[in-house]
Design a protein around this nucleic acid. Structure first.
Lengths: 131, 131
DNA sequence: GATCTTCATGACAATCATTCTCATTTAGAC
DNA sequence: GTCTAAATGAGAATGATTGTCATGAAGATC
């Protein structure tokens, strides 16, 4: 995996996107980030935001989730594996730990002969401020 | 919830869709089901397949997942809450049980003041036949 | 069985997130 | 400063899903 990685160039746009994501702890979609940047006067293109966020997520710099309606949302990542409890209306996020989940998964996968297991575990709810 | 439900009419199309989903234990998208039906000579419209599958899922008749690339896939449902281990290439599915997950979730949600918790937990891997 | 009301259907247009294309710009190496 | 490959921007293209609306058929009623 690490052998095929390339170091991306340091462009103004990439820095702007990185800052915009880091500025807010809630999950945000590419479109949201793009809007935010445009409102701040940036001239970044939508496609660039999509490409940059995708690349950052691939390199492990960002966490991604798929919102209930199918959109991809990004958020600056805390190192270490974890899951999220996301507020459906404001996007506020809490990182949660699910001890034993990994082990259970591997055990079950082994039982059924599945390899290269990947999991998508997210929780959605309404946070106290939005209730 | 039960008060707003309506019993759908028994149309030929609805029966065809139901049969097509039941015929295959793997998760399939609306488009796939539609293709299958057309190949069998059916004249169902794509929109009808979408609407029917959606309605069946809403009534609890079908399970749904979102594939890694964002599409919605359906499968005949075994009663009771459970999660899935899905083969990325053939869609073969194993229903798995994650004891304690519900309880852990509720506890964590309570700690952070989140309400109406919903979770999306799916596992993807490569099954033995596809490896 | 004929009639009527209402929901379901089908064909196609519309939507919307995401990706592609390609001409232009620019980061970073020399 | 020059050069070259990678990054960008604008807009077109894609593709899953949903909306529209005229037509058809379930199922209730007679």
């Amino acid at each position: 995996m690490t052998s095929t990685e390339r170091t991306p160039r340091n462009t103004r746009q990439r820095a702007e996107v990185r800052d915009a994501v880091a500025a807010n702890p809630a999950f945000a979609t590419s479109q949201t980030i793009h809007d935010r940047l445009r409102h701040e006067g940036s001239k970044v293109g939508l496609a660039t935001v999509y490409r940059t966020l995708q690349a950052m997520a691939a390199s492990g710099e960002l966490d991604t989730i798929r919102t209930p309606d199918g959109q991809i949302a990004y958020r600056t990542c805390t190192p270490g594996h974890h899951h999220h409890l996301v507020c459906r209306s404001c996007g506020r996020t809490v990182e949660i730990d699910l001890p034993g989940l990994e082990a259970t998964t591997r055990r079950i996968a082994g039982e059924y002969g599945f390899a290269e297991i990947d999991h998508e575990v997210e929780f959605f709810g309404t946070c106290s401020s939005c209730a």
